[in-house]
Every structure is written in structure tokens, then in C-alpha cells.
Nucleic acid binder design. Structure first.
Lengths: 121, 121
DNA sequence: CGCTCGTACAACCGTATCGTTGTATCGGTG
DNA sequence: CACCGATACAACGATACGGTTGTACGAGCG
């Protein structure tokens, strides 16, 4: 399956909320139902439920029946997809630094010569 | 300076938009003014300007005067802060896996085998 | 079988966001 | 200094978001 650019939108949007990030964190190491989750936050049960729904739509968590509850588990895959994008940016950055170094090296070679004419935009 | 949890909100929120992610990407390797940036996107100049403002508020980019333009540069630091959070989640995940392995080992040990129980970290 | 625990979902409200257009400002260039 | 290239900002409308309350459903327990 191919990851399209717009797939990142819901993931980052989901992570842009403090409460949702905390749910992700909790759901890594615990297996709580929505009701248990909700007890940690100063908002209604329904509000937490909505946050869980956002996270689920983003693929960051999944729900599984256990007894009469539906426990929430975070899906590492989605987190890694987000991280991969940040890694790409970092790689681009490093490549750019490399290019700058090249330029500097070039200039160093040109030292002493009379200003080469730059035709900048 | 200390990073508080709410500092992540604007960063992830800023990254939750396709156009803004593209601006971040461009601003890594190019030095364009807002007007030049805007030429790449199917929206008004003012809209792009707003996106840039969002990115700037999130600390993801900075603006610098060059001649009569204000060129946009992405700030790797902010990107790394976001990545660091994802790394933390991954570490939590791995720790959790470790804990599960322990449990499994314990059970295996309980099945009459002579397995030495490891008390990890 | 019926109750109730846990969850889902709809309706609503206030505010934020994303786009638009129009106007104001700021700094170089001629 | 006058002009114009480049940016900033205000106002507006449509839509999305984050919270609330209230109601409905479905699965286990007694």
C-alpha cells in the first residue's frame, strides 16, 4: 500500500492535541476501556470518546473487545509513518548542508581570483 | 528553556496541513520570499502568507530580510523536537514489549522447565 | 430474561481554521 | 522624493473542532 501525502494530515492533526497525545501514551503500556481512559481527564466521557475516534480514524490506535469493554491499543506503525516524514526532512536538511559545504569549497578554490560575476535572479 | 507539553500542539497542528508541510520542505533547500512561495500553490498570496505565519508561530520556520524580500528558512530544531516525542513513544513501546517478554519468560519458567529467571534492569 | 455497564452517536454551541478580497505599510530603486 | 515591489493585516464567510448533554444500542452478569 502506498502512502499519499494527505495521509499525514489526520495523523499530525490527531497528535496536535495534548489529551490525544496522552491517550496515545497511555495506550502503549495499558489496556484501558474508554470509560477508564476518561477518568484521567477533566472532561466528559463523550469528549474522550471523540478523541479516541479521532485517533482511530488517524490509524494511531485500534479498539479491541475484551469482555464488555473495548480496550484501546496504540498502533506503532502510524507513529513511525509520522516519524519517517520528519526523518526525510532531516535528510533533506543534511543534504542541503552538504551542498553548502560544496559551495564553500568552490569559493575557497576561487580565492584570489577577481569576483566572478553572479547573475542572481 | 523547558519544553512543556502544550508546546507540541502548534508544531503538530502546523504539520497537519499538506501545503504547510510542502512549505517546510521547500524552505529547507531554497530561500524564497512569500511571493515566490505562493506561486507554487493554487491559492491566494494572502492564504500562503497565513500558512507561513502559522509555521512561524510554531517555530518551524523563520523569516529573514534579504533585499526587499523576506525569505523563509525552516528551523530544524522544531522538527527535531517533534521527532523526539515520537522517539519517546517508540521507546515506551519497546519497553512494553520487553515487559511482555518478561511475562512470557516467567510463564515458560512456571511450566516446570529449569529456565533461569532473568531479572532485567 | 432483564438489568446495567460500557459504548456509540446525534444535536447543539462557541471558537478556531482556511480560504477569500481589500487596504495599509514598509523599504529599495530610479 | 515618488513609485512600486513585497509583505502585512483586517474583515468576512464557510467549514471543522472541542466541548457539552441526552438518547439509543449491545453484550454480559445475575
Amino acid at each position: 500500500m502506498q502512502i499519499t501525502a494527505s495521509d499525514f494530515d489526520p495523523v499530525f492533526a490527531a497528535l496536535a492535541d495534548h489529551t490525544r497525545r496522552d491517550i496515545v501514551r497511555r495506550a502503549i503500556s495499558a489496556e484501558e476501556g474508554i470509560l477508564e481512559l476518561a477518568s484521567h481527564y477533566p472532561m466528559s466521557f463523550a469528549a474522550v470518546q471523540k478523541h479516541v475516534a479521532v485517533l482511530e480514524r488517524a490509524g494511531l490506535i485500534t479498539k479491541h473487545r475484551i469482555g464488555r469493554r473495548r480496550v484501546v491499543r496504540t498502533n506503532l506503525e502510524a507513529l513511525l509513518i509520522a516519524r519517517r516524514l520528519l526523518d526525510q526532512y532531516e535528510a533533506l536538511w543534511l543534504a542541503q548542508i552538504g551542498r553548502m559545504d560544496e559551495l564553500i569549497a568552490e569559493r575557497a578554490g576561487a580565492v584570489g581570483t577577481v569576483e566572478t560575476k553572479e547573475s542572481k535572479r
